[in-house]
Write a protein that binds this DNA or RNA. Structure first.
Lengths: 223, 223
DNA sequence: ACGGGAGGTTAATACAAGGTTAATCCTTAT
DNA sequence: ATAAGGATTAACCTTGTATTAACCTCCCGT
């Protein structure tokens, strides 16, 4: 899991960064808003922790720009202010959480994990639908016709479809979620993976990976 | 959207309940943990707001039981304590948010809306009129005579008519809205789709897709 | 009651979306 | 440097569906 931390207080930033790294995150640390903007594009983080008051670009403005570019990315505001107006402004921007300094790093970690669990359902490892179960971390797929070892992309795509079972997923949604961007060739690549997944899943009559022409795909449980 | 509010302070509970109702929620108000547990089963809320300290059953215990029964339901803790241990306990339970009293009702609303947006972002997908419902994203149409799988254009057109039910839609309006432009041939194309939709909808006597000659079409509920 | 135009219906066609397989390009490890 | 594994690109094929066409019906004005 990659995390972008934007904090202008150098010492505090370093301590926080260390703490979060220890918890198993891949951290990108920015000293100001502009740097954060650049780092965001380089590292494509899964979650952003933004100080509100920073030189170059404040956290609110940054969040707005990030939202516009990558709507799904969750973010947490960090601030010394506990002013009602600021908190409300942050929440209106769709912040997933808002923490006022001083705070306990352990609490930050808990909040981060909560959000990630919610957003990515990342705490789970086993996903089961019908007769088929995916062990995500070990890339194993167990179907009525036997075990398969998946590749990373196969597993990512299948997991996404399993998490969103019975819900239509547009091509854009899947591409931005799994591939990080949406262009023609990645779309064709996805089609190749869908084709492969169908082969793996063909032994299980209790589910169907249907295409919704012009929209996307859906992994359905059928009676 | 239905909300379950569990709060033992009667006055405060009422004020909050009123405020949340004004924001368009359907509120179930419980005076203690046990009542909340019962109300939860009756009203199946989309989100729960739980006071931590309540008679009969405290908020934490309640949340655990709710989680076990209905893992997807988001909840927010409300508490007078700002003890670090308590907050951490709440977050460990997977609380979607944690608010310490005293707080601003407006802020509660903002947090509620943030969480709902995140959790139910895939909403706004089902349209129902009379006995017929359209699941737009999965292109499914459920009528008294059974399920149908629609095409994209069929679904777009039907959705437009359902959104504007009981309102006359001119040919021009529909064409510019759905097809992006308005010419003779697209008009004939639309007639083909109207014809198909009528077939799909023929099993439902509670609605009529009528022609307004020289003007356009209207999807009406008839009693 | 007749003619014309608006809309209904069905079938034929063209084309774009997606399926499939193979080739190629990258990474990574040795 | 090379090999292996995996992702992407390419090429070709299939199929679903929006459009177009052709013909029909019905309504409305004269």
């Amino acid at each position: 899991m990659k995390l972008l931390l934007a904090e202008d207080d150098v010492d505090f930033g370093n301590i926080l960064s260390q703490y979060v790294t220890l918890s198993g995150f891949d951290v990108a640390l920015a000293r100001n808003g502009r740097e954060a903007w650049d780092l965001f594009h380089e590292s494509r983080p899964d979650i952003c922790v933004l100080d509100v008051m920073m030189p170059e670009m404040d956290g609110f403005t940054l969040a707005e720009k990030l939202r516009a570019e990558e709507p799904g990315v969750p973010f947490i505001f960090l601030t010394a202010k506990s002013l009602r107006e600021d908190i409300i402004k942050g929440l209106k921007l769709g912040a997933d959480d808002y923490i006022t300094k001083p705070f306990d790093p352990e609490m930050l970690m808990l909040r981060i994990n909560n959000i990630l669990r919610r957003v990515y359902s990342a705490a789970e490892d086993e996903y089961t639908i019908s007769e088929t179960t995916l062990k995500y971390n070990s890339l194993e797929l167990i179907t009525p016709s036997g075990k398969e070892r998946l590749t990373l992309r196969e597993a990512q795509l299948l997991r996404h479809l399993m998490i969103n079972r019975n819900k239509a997923q547009t091509r854009e949604q899947i591409l931005t979620e799994i591939w990080g961007q949406d262009d023609y060739f990645l779309g064709r690549s996805m089609d190749v993976f869908i084709s492969r997944l169908r082969k793996y899943l063909s032994g299980d009559r209790g589910l169907a990976l249907r295409t919704l022409r012009g929209i996307g795909f859906i992994l359905e449980e059928v009676n």
